[in-house]
Nucleic acid binder design. Structure first.
Lengths: 226, 226
DNA sequence: CACAACTGTGAACGGTGTGTGAACGACCGA
DNA sequence: TCGGTCGTTCACACACCGTTCACAGTTGTG
């Protein structure tokens, strides 16, 4: 497990105590420079920024860490109750926050949840939508637990549609994005693949792919979105 | 803004007070059945589940909401300090939580952050004007939350009119801009499409499209109002 | 009030776009 | 070489939708 980056340096003793007691590893840094210098080879496991003493430096560090090449997640912020207003319009700087002084059990729960979420978003190997599952690693597809036997082009087309649920794509767009930018061929090819996809999805799920007349096709939610 | 789903029903008075004071709309539901029944046409704006009184029902509702076709986000959980351990291994059931009893300012900050996180990923391109919404990505149209089933030309015409609210367009201009610069056809075609649009908009919204005699048509506010 | 110009309305026609079945050809492993 | 799979193309049928027309209703003008 990669260590947490902890700010400031020295770190508050109650935070150190909590981290050590629960078995998290950590390294305290005082600014962006030391954060880069002391970064492990395999990267930081996350960041815990205590902002109550020097909020300016804390937010500056958040910004720097977020601009970094390696996405640093999760970024936990510890603020005093009086600082809550400062969080407004700074949503992009942190993943979760906790009031300082903190309850160890609450902070641990937040840490775990933030770690779970970070690991989940990082590996986007699965596309799931209303019963349909696409495993991007194994190239397997399934609907409601039943495996779908899709050909390569069928899989790629379905993957592209399902990764933008609701959005309507023209045949030309689909040809250029799924088949390739330099593809020359009839637009009706798309129709045939759509039809085979619908057939393999089965009668009850065929409506997952919707025709928008004179425009193209879209996947999923016929719902009223926004 | 879509209302929040609030559990349980009746909702705790301090929660209601906080939501009303800060201007969030909400509806209290008692279980999954009522949650489905009372769901607005445009969906829930999120969920706030207070779990300290009946944790079993609360978690069951979370599960049900998460299994739903429509992704319900964000899902906020309110738990007592003694319940923190129960959050373990249930990361998938909630987006953020808050200790109960809560500090209004902290909860509001969490709500805002969770909303930001839920909405940042997919912000659709929209044309909105006086109740009418056109989603340019999904080709959906709606008036006051109710979906409109428009044909291609109807959609294109309405999109063009609504993207220049108040401006009057002659039939010739509409034909060249909506139908195409090289269109040859009778100007009365526009009339018929306008008529069908008005019909689909419904009696109470038909006046969104205004006739300017001897000139053409315009959308939205009467041009006499500055 | 009368007339002309303009617009709303209903219905019908014809064309366009899409679904569907089938066939062709490229590619690949046996 | 053969059989099979997969992507592509073609032909046809049909539902839908854009267009047109005739007529009724409305508005403006002298």
């Amino acid at each position: 497990m990669q260590p947490f980056l902890v700010f400031p340096n020295p770190a508050p003793p109650e935070l150190i105590q909590m981290l050590d007691l629960t078995g998290w590893s950590w390294r305290a840094v005082g600014d962006e420079v030391t954060a880069r210098r002391d970064e492990p080879d395999d990267g930081w496991g996350g960041a815990i920024i205590v902002a109550d003493k020097s909020p300016e430096a804390a937010f500056a560090l958040c910004r720097a860490l977020r601009k970094n090449d390696r996405p640093l997640e999760p970024l936990m912020l510890l603020v005093s109750g009086a600082q809550l207003a400062e969080l407004d319009l700074r949503d992009d700087l942190y993943d979760d926050f906790c009031l300082w002084p903190f309850q160890p059990r609450e902070f641990e729960a937040r840490l775990k949840h933030a770690l779970w979420r970070a690991g989940r978003s990082a590996r986007a190997e699965l596309i799931e939508h209303s019963g349909l599952v696409l495993n991007l690693e194994t190239y397997q597809a399934g609907i409601n637990g039943h495996p779908l036997d899709l050909t390569y082009m069928e899989y790629e087309l379905l993957k592209f549609l399902a990764s933008h649920p609701g959005k309507v794509f023209s045949r030309e767009t689909l040809l250029s994005r799924v088949w390739g930018y330099d593809y020359f061929g009839g637009a009706r090819t798309v129709d045939v693949h759509i039809r085979r996809l619908r057939a393999k999805l089965g009668e009850e799920h065929a409506n997952l792919i919707q025709t928008v007349r004179s425009v193209g096709y879209s996947f999923g939610q016929s719902r009223w979105s926004l």
